[in-house]
Design a protein around this nucleic acid. Structure first.
Lengths: 189, 189
DNA sequence: TTTATATTATAACCAGGTACTAATTTTTAG
DNA sequence: CTAAAAATTAGTACCTGGTTATAATATAAA
């Protein structure tokens, strides 16, 4: 893994940034071996580049992802619920990030949008609910990472245990998504 | 946050496990203050319980979630692609985890299943694709955390830039989901 | 060759530990 | 009540992966 020829300062620093971006778990010692320079040089480099020490980097990764995994994978609701009238309507907001998008196109993957819509629909129908059917979903125009999605859900019909919910999602007043969900209540609250 | 009354050993150790599960970023010092015992007692507790030191815990969190965030939030495809005939069909497998489920019921949230279906549909239609319409989705029976989802996608019709894809998902030969996707190619490969 | 820049060396110090030994306190059994 | 066992606390040496500061040396540029 170590270089035979030494790089100059700026090249080394660029490479250093790149390496740590790829693997934040490298110690100064690992890096000094890799670049075949002294450990002090690495520390000066980090100082100049404003890169924190290993432990802080690890902690950053841990903290950043700790909540993230819980909130994105494990969220009971995707996005932030800003208004809720149980059994009738609700609004949620989702700030999209590059994580949610295809790296090449920066277009947000459909299922992230779907997730917001579905979870909002489930929040509005206040009960232990099972989603059984969905019809007529449409992604009306592509969403770019960074766009703020505003989802509005309305219960349009209740027939026994079946709840029909329409969800529309907007970016700057422009509708980007619509979906009709059919939710079946398993156990009332 | 500190207790006035001291707990006995086993209660303290139970609580300690609980605390660290909730917040792995607590130092021995934090804990010794919380329980109003000496730092050595905390260290003996950790030793007996097999709990690693703070830095190791942080590192574990970081490492565990480092790939996870990339693979779950940022995955181009949800699940593992095990078979692919470009333009015609594909199969993916998704091992569900408690993360994906509602904590109360252990039932996997619909959008996780949807994500697998949608991303498989997009993988099968090999092109830069935009998902525009979906119809007739049905969650046929609830999926529990731990179930292995096998998704099968088939391109049923191609009309110009529109590709119609059917996705069926099974758990142990039992169908749990079906969905009809309409994909529109933006730019051929 | 002199100056400036980059690199290396050295030393003191820090957090958050491990590992070990020993003393003290509390609990329990007889 | 008292001796033995269990739990807790104290203290020391040492570790990793650093920070901060000061000084010496090597290399490149003028």
């Amino acid at each position: 893994m170590s270089k035979t020829r030494k790089l100059n300062k700026s090249k080394r620093q660029n490479k250093l940034l790149e390496l740590l971006k790829e693997d934040p778990f490298l110690t100064d010692d690992d890096l000094s071996e890799y670049f075949n320079v002294s450990i002090q040089t690495i520390r000066l480099d980090r100082l100049e580049l404003g890169i924190p020490e290993l432990r802080q980097r690890i902690k950053n990764v841990a903290e950043k992802n700790y909540e993230k995994v819980r909130s994105i994978v494990g969220a009971e609701i995707v996005g932030e619920l800003v208004d809720l009238n149980l059994g009738t309507s609700g609004i949620s907001i989702l700030e999209t990030t590059p994580d949610m998008a295809f790296s090449k196109t920066n277009i947000v993957r459909g299922h992230n949008i779907f997730s917001q819509a579905e979870s909002l629909a489930m929040a509005v129908v206040d009960a232990e609910v099972a989603l059984t059917g969905v019809s007529n979903i449409k992604y009306l125009s592509p969403v770019s990472a960074g766009d703020k999605l505003i989802a509005k859900a309305e219960v349009t019909r209740v027939r026994g245990n079946n709840h029909f919910v329409h969800v529309k999602i907007y970016v700057n007043q422009t509708q980007v998504f619509r979906g009709k969900f059919i939710l079946v209540i398993i156990k009332g609250k």
